[in-house]
């Protein structure tokens, strides 16, 4: 499932009026079809979030966001993200190091295992933790005796979110680390550097954009995760409600105002998505430019 998050390591797009191009009307038909699809399916929904959110004016919008339960949901989401993302970043670096820099048996299996959260339904993921830590779960009795709450509490939500988002950094870093090879690290070793020194001074700087890219995606998913979290959280307002769960709660309440509030809260996540996309595009533009520069440089050598 490598194609899911790591894509677009693109070279320069070469296009001109080639003799083998399609006739103009075909080109324009295809462009129109593609753009119409993007417009209706991707742009409109995004615009709609903001239009609906401000439907009852700016005052109501602000009021919706400042509601106590919503503020709590925002705080909880940030808390979960602050635990999950660093954990998964460390995991991603460790996994990428052993997978990209070494050959060993079972590597393909390990990569597939890392891909698992991409393929497994978030609901199933959430349920797996309920099976262990829920009231009737394997550890349920023991946890209850010791008065430890995992399910319907923050620890369970952290676990579920960590599960859903752990592949992102690893998946971004593996191809980047593979592409740089191991020669620079070997060179550092011959110059006397220890493993840590090699990692900090050589590996990390040359793959830092990959790390950032992975962290951005991981962060977006962690803040927006719904399915897995809703299974383990119990959605108790003011206690175990994250932003997406809050949106769900507001949407399903009967009042018209709550519906608008749902959009107001949702607009926060939409903004997050937009920021993610901007950073993502910037990083891609950067890697593309670096790549082009490097190619230009090697081109000059031949002269």
């Amino acid at each position: 499932m490598a194609g899911i998050v790591n894509h677009k390591r693109r070279g320069a797009t070469v296009k001109s009026q080639r003799g083998s191009d399609e006739p103009a009307w075909v080109r324009w038909l295809l462009i129109t079809l593609g753009l119409a699809f993007v417009g209706i399916f991707l742009v409109l929904p995004l615009v709609n979030v903001f239009v609906q959110a401000f439907q009852m004016g700016l005052g109501f919008y602000v009021k919706s966001l400042l509601e106590a339960d919503t503020v709590h949901a925002i705080k909880l989401t940030l808390l979960i993200t602050c635990i999950t993302v660093p954990l998964n970043t460390i995991f991603g670096m460790a996994a990428a190091w052993c997978i990209a820099k070494f050959d060993f048996k079972g590597k393909a299996f390990l990569i597939t295992l890392i891909d698992l959260p991409f393929a497994v339904s978030p609901v199933v993921a959430g349920l797996m933790f309920v099976v262990w830590f829920g009231r009737q779960g394997i550890f349920g009795g023991w946890l209850e005796e010791h008065d430890i709450k995992i399910i319907f509490a923050v620890p369970g939500m952290v676990l579920a979110t960590t599960f859903i988002t752990f592949p992102f950094v690893a998946r971004e870093l593996i191809p980047v680390m593979q592409a740089t090879g191991t020669e620079q690290e070997q060179a550092a070793l011959t110059l006397g550097a220890s493993g840590w020194q090699t990692f900090w001074h050589v590996t990390l700087p040359s793959s830092k954009w990959g790390v950032i890219y992975g962290v951005i995606l991981c962060n977006a998913r962690a803040m927006g995760e719904f399915g897995a979290v809703s299974v383990v959280s119990g959605s108790i307002a003011g206690s175990t409600e994250t932003i997406p769960l809050r949106v769900d709660k507001l949407f399903h309440s009967a009042s018209m105002a709550a519906g608008v509030s749902a959009f107001a809260v949702a607009s926060l996540l939409a903004v997050l998505a937009l920021i993610t996309l901007v950073i993502k595009s910037y990083l891609e533009w950067r890697t593309e430019r670096d790549h082009a520069l490097a190619q230009e440089a090697t081109g000059e050598v031949g002269n």
């Binding site: 740089t180 020669e183 620079q184 070997q186 060179a187 070793l189 220890s194």
Partner: peptide, 21 residues
Amino acid sequence: VPVQKRNIGFVFQNYALFKTM
């Protein structure tokens, strides 16, 4: 003796220069 401690200088075929330095 690990590579770090052998006090050798090694020049790699493709140089392996640190790209970020």
